[in-house]
Amino acid sequence: MATSREHTLTGTHGTLVAREWPHQSPRYLAILVHGYGEHIGRYTWVAGTLTGDGAAVYGVDQLGHGRSEGDRVLVADFEDVVTNVHALREHAVREHPGVPVVVIGHSMGGMIAARYAQRHGEGLTALVLSGPVLGEWGPIAELLAYEEPPDVPIDPSTLSRDPAVGAAYAADPLVWHGPFRRPTLEAFAATLATITKAGSLGALPTLWIHGEDDRLVPLTGTRIGIEAIRGADFTERIYPGARHEVFNETNREEVLADVTTFVDRVLPG
Rank of each mutant, 00 (worst) to 15 (best):
H65Q: 07
G211Y: 00
H34N: 06
D155F: 06
P205A: 01
E122T: 14
R265F: 12
L134K: 13
G199N: 06
P179G: 08
G241D: 02
R94S: 15
A2W: 09
P150I: 13
V17A: 13
G225Q: 09
L192A: 05
P183A: 03
M111R: 07
I140G: 11
H86C: 10
A141M: 03
P163W: 01
A171D: 14
F188M: 14
W137F: 14
D213V: 04
A190M: 13
F234Q: 11
A141I: 03
M108F: 08
V75R: 02
R182F: 00
Y116R: 00
G11D: 11
D233G: 02
R182W: 01
A168V: 12
L204A: 06
T125S: 11
P268W: 04
A141G: 15
V266E: 07
V255F: 14
T125W: 01
A126W: 08
D151Y: 01
T250Q: 05
Q62Y: 10
G138V: 11
H244D: 04
E38S: 02
R5D: 10
G123N: 06
T220I: 13
V259G: 07
A114P: 03
G11M: 03
G211W: 02
V165H: 01
E253W: 13
I140D: 05
H120V: 10
V93T: 12
Y58T: 04
W45H: 14
E147K: 15
R237C: 03
P179L: 03
G54S: 10
E122D: 15
R181C: 08
P268T: 10
L204G: 02
P97Q: 10
A114S: 05
A30S: 06
G241Y: 00
L185H: 02
D71P: 14
R223A: 12
S107K: 04
R265E: 09
V165I: 15
L127V: 10
S157H: 07
